[in-house]
Design a protein around this nucleic acid. Structure first.
Lengths: 168, 168
DNA sequence: GTCAAATATTTTACAGGTGTAATACCTGTT
DNA sequence: AACAGGTATTACACCTGTAAAATATTTGAC
């Protein structure tokens, strides 16, 4: 059993402040660290396609819901601010990956859908992304992966209940 | 067993693209989502102290190693760019939380240490942070937490081996 | 019914943080 | 002395969120 970075950080804290209950770091520190490493790595395939992770998330949200979404819905779906969505939509529209349509009844709202190219791009990129992720996870055996997924789900439910309910 | 957001996203993908192997999302999607929620939440206590998470990480790195660090070491330790560290140090120095000292032998390098106020701030904030984190994790029972920490450690070792070795 | 106020949706303006690349500076080597 | 390499900073461009503004709808009083 080899050490990860968090284990050594915890050791440092214990050496300097022996009374400290560093228990939470063992989970939360590792989650943050994993997320940071994954982000660096996963950005690579997307960068090859000239896309930000945030832009890909937006395209994916439209693709998977399989209907037009408003900018507001996209903001909620991708957990970003409305302003960020506006800017991303502009970029993606200039690249002809999404189209906009004004609502007929309520002229405040817009409806966003993928162009054929946008859809094709998502459908090409997502399997690449998942294949990469599978290769990363291959170091864990099947029951280990299931266990991890299940524990993370429990934690995520807690976090959503506490923080994620009525957001933004 | 209640559903989390990732489970519903996976369901959406399956409905739209039944052949897709969405397995990796169950782990990686959840890690990213947990990290995002934790970041939003953890920023709160720090914001009360007028600190960014990144600034707090920097202070913590100096505190836990218990010696002076150079800007380069701080960049490696906190996984950010040298430029970001430079700017943070300027801010923290203006707030009298860190001090700089030039190396005598090699005048390229600087040594950074905490001021008394900086050290006191970290020592006050970190227990608050950990207490908050403990309350979030309280929804999981003890063996569940241990299991989660252990699985995350395995994954982190994999990720570090693959990506984290010689970085930046 | 009509108009004003409240509400809703999106965009724009602005400020702040980050990374990449270029620059400045320093050391040690040949 | 020139040069190769290391360390830190600066310059620049980009992305993000908050807050204010623009536009449109709904509500409620009269």
């Amino acid at each position: 059993m080899t050490d990860d970075i968090v284990a050594s950080v915890v050791r440092q804290w214990q050496a300097v402040n022996p009374g400290l209950d560093t228990g939470p770091m063992e989970i939360i520190g590792r989650i943050n660290r994993c997320a940071a490493l994954l982000q660096q790595a996963e950005d690579a395939p997307l960068r090859a396609a000239g896309l930000t992770r945030a832009e890909f998330d937006l395209l994916g949200a439209v693709r998977r819901t399989d209907r037009e979404l408003t900018p507001g819905e996209l903001a909620r779906e991708t957990f970003s601010s409305g302003a960020a969505v506006t800017k991303r939509l502009r970029v993606l529209k200039d690249r002809a990956l999404v189209e906009r349509r004004g609502d007929d009844r309520d002229r405040r709202v817009a409806h966003v859908r993928l162009t054929d190219e946008g859809r094709a791009l998502v459908d090409r990129l997502l399997p690449e992304q998942l294949a990469y992720e599978r290769s990363v996870l291959a170091g864990l055996d099947r029951p280990g992966r299931d266990e991890l997924a299940s524990r993370l789900s429990e934690l995520l439910v807690q976090l959503e209940g506490r923080l994620g309910g009525a957001r933004r």
